[in-house]
Write a protein that binds this DNA or RNA. Structure first.
Length: 272
DNA sequence: AGTACGTCCTGATCGC
DNA sequence: TGCGATCAGGACGTAC
């Protein structure tokens, strides 16, 4: 589930749970392959004693800058993959069966990393740029202007939907919000990026920002209402994801197809 | 370089 | 109700 809005929601939950200021006392890794850097032993050793300074997000990555007693700084980086989720809970709370990793804190709570499909990833590094892939400016912080987007799409003949999923083009974009952005912009997901007009790219850029912002707002409300239970996954998009379902705009039937192997839904009439 | 495909995993859901 | 088949919202390595 985690795309930019879900990861941003997770980030805000960790802030609200007052994770910053706490120190890690222990790492319990339940699926070794999740830890990419360094090796397991060094990871557990390096994490111990680290005091969380803040919770940042870069695209779909959560970054926890840590400082230990000797004022050495490292960063714990988490990627939630396809099915990951994070929560901070008292150690005594019942453990969800899909929690793969737990990071004990110095106040009797622990950071829990749930990851049913085991596609999540974890790094502990001195310099995040060692492991982070190239990412576009964050769509929520104004850096992803129509000009920047147009430049990224220049000369690219792949379907626009496929390119929106590239994190170097739109950091944080995922399959669902790609469909939603294209629906809002009225653009067919299968069209070649190079064939888009300047006006369409402008509309697409605006739709990307709108789609992500609207979803985050929904999470914001849900979090306030349901705290401390993290908001369940909510429907942060407006287009249907069922073949034949009525288009919210023209009432015509939605089409389901595959673009680069990913489930793709669009209105053939509004997104001709 | 750009594009397309297979692969890593298991839980949830669908159809018979 | 039970059970096998299919599907899932990410990302990367590989090959053309």
């Amino acid at each position: 589930m985690p795309e930019l809005p879900e990861v941003e929601n997770a980030r805000r939950c960790l802030i609200k749970a007052e994770l910053p200021g706490r120190a890690f006392t222990k790492a319990d890794i339940g699926w070794a392959k999740s830890v990419k850097t360094p090796d397991l032993e060094e990871f557990a050793l390096g994490l111990r004693g680290g005091v969380v300074q803040d919770v940042h997000r870069r695209g779909k990555y959560i970054l926890l800058p840590l400082v230990n007693g000797e004022s050495e700084t490292r960063t714990l980086i988490l990627h939630l993959g396809m099915s990951g989720g994070l929560s901070v809970q008292p150690r005594t709370n019942p453990m969800h069966p899909l929690v793969r990793h737990t990071f004990s804190l110095d106040d009797g709570r622990e950071l829990r990393f749930e990851d049913g499909r085991k596609f999540g990833k974890i790094w502990l590094v001195s310099d995040p740029s060692e492991v982070l892939p190239p990412l576009s400016p964050d769509p929520l912080e104004g850096g992803l202007t129509p000009q920047v987007l147009a430049k990224s799409l220049e000369g690219r003949n792949a379907p626009i939907k496929a390119l929106l999923l590239e994190q170097s083009i739109v950091a944080g974009m995922g399959n669902l919000y790609a469909d939603e952005s294209l629906f809002l912009a009225g653009i067919n997901p299968t069209r070649s990026a190079a064939g888009l007009t300047g006006e369409e790219i402008d509309r697409l850029q605006q739709s990307i920002v709108n789609a992500l912002t609207a979803s985050i707002e929904k999470y914001e409300t849900a979090r306030d209402e349901s705290w401390p239970d993290p908001p369940r996954a909510l429907t942060g998009w407006t287009h249907p994801r069922t073949e034949g379902a009525p288009c919210p705009r023209c009432n015509g039937p939605f089409t389901g197809t595959r673009v680069r192997g990913r489930g793709t839904y669009y209105c053939p009439k509004c997104q001709g």
